[in-house]
């Protein structure tokens, strides 16, 4: 037996021992709180297991290892089944079955609804999609793919035009001079508030120029030279501010997630904090 193998076996044994230890200690603490004995043993197992999985994922930060591999593979299997079950019960049994068959509705104990012949369209398209699995009928699956893509294209075209395009454009119509009261008041208040005319006006100018120089950066059929070159340069700077700001703003959310995990480890598992 070579050395590295021996070390990994020792680590494995250590983890098993720690796991069992944690299981026993957790069970007794849960029992002391007054949980039913069988339940406390079950919950203690689950908490320990969840803590093990959490640490297994964190170990990936150091390097890839068998414990991460275990967690990863378990996660893939469990999650795939999770979504299939949820989709089956909520969409297939919840929305589809009641519309097409009373017998099946009764079987699944969902209230049947008015029969709707149109619900056979997705049924047929769904079955066509499954034709991929047969070597000869593969071309039929393209029909349902075509249906899906057509739906996507039709819905998205209008949706983006209506909300992202039209609304964003109309939101850009902002006054380029906010509540002008003369030069004196304009330059007297540099605060970020409704009274700070200068800052508001400046902000509106930045938005106005930023949006249009940004759009010019996205021109594809013009070479970025001369006026276009300068404008798209400004556009890139605006985009860089956007990216930097968004990134910096996100750190907080990410740290929160780590806090959540550590809280689980310290509180629910180890009981270090209340």
């Amino acid at each position: 037996m070579d050395r590295s193998r021996r070390i990994s076996l020792i680590i494995f044994a250590g983890i098993i021992i720690l796991f069992i230890l944690s299981w026993i200690i957790k069970s007794t603490t849960l029992l002391n709180v007054g949980t039913e004995s069988l339940l406390s043993i079950r919950d203690a197992f689950f908490i320990t297991f969840a803590a093990f999985l959490t640490l297994a994922i964190f170990s990936f930060l150091y390097k890839d290892n068998p414990y991460y591999k275990f967690a990863e593979h378990l996660f893939v299997g469990v999650s795939a089944a999770y979504w299939m079950c949820v989709g089956f019960w909520s969409t297939f049994v919840g929305n589809f079955i009641p519309k097409v068959s009373t017998t099946l509705s009764n079987f699944f104990e969902v209230p049947p609804k008015e029969f709707d012949i149109f619900y056979f369209i997705p049924l047929i398209l769904g079955l066509m999609l499954l034709m991929r699995l047969s070597p000869k009928g593969g071309w039929l699956s393209r029909w349902s793919l075509a249906f899906i893509v057509g739906t996507t294209a039709g819905l998205n075209l209008i949706r983006y035009l209506r909300t992202d395009f039209i609304t964003q454009v109309s939101n850009t119509f902002i006054p380029l001079l906010v509540d002008w009261n003369g030069i004196g008041p304009f330059f007297s208040d540099f605060s970020l508030s409704a009274s700070g005319q200068f800052v508001m006006t400046l902000g509106n100018w930045v938005i106005f120029i930023g949006v249009f120089s940004g759009l010019i950066y996205f021109f594809f059929s013009k070479e970025h030279k001369g006026f276009f070159g300068h404008a798209s340069r400004v556009g890139i700077w605006v985009l860089m501010i956007t990216f930097g700001a968004s990134f910096g703003y996100t750190v907080m959310g990410r740290v929160s997630l780590l806090v959540g995990r550590l809280t689980f480890l310290f509180k629910d598992w180890l009981g270090l904090i209340s």
């Binding site: 939101n171 703003y249 959310g253």
Partner: peptide
């Protein structure tokens, strides 16, 4: 979540 927040500023305060 903070990550999506800057993206939503364009909707404030109108929408």
């Amino acid at each position: 979540a903070a990550v999506a927040t800057p993206l939503l500023y364009p909707y404030y305060p109108k929408q």
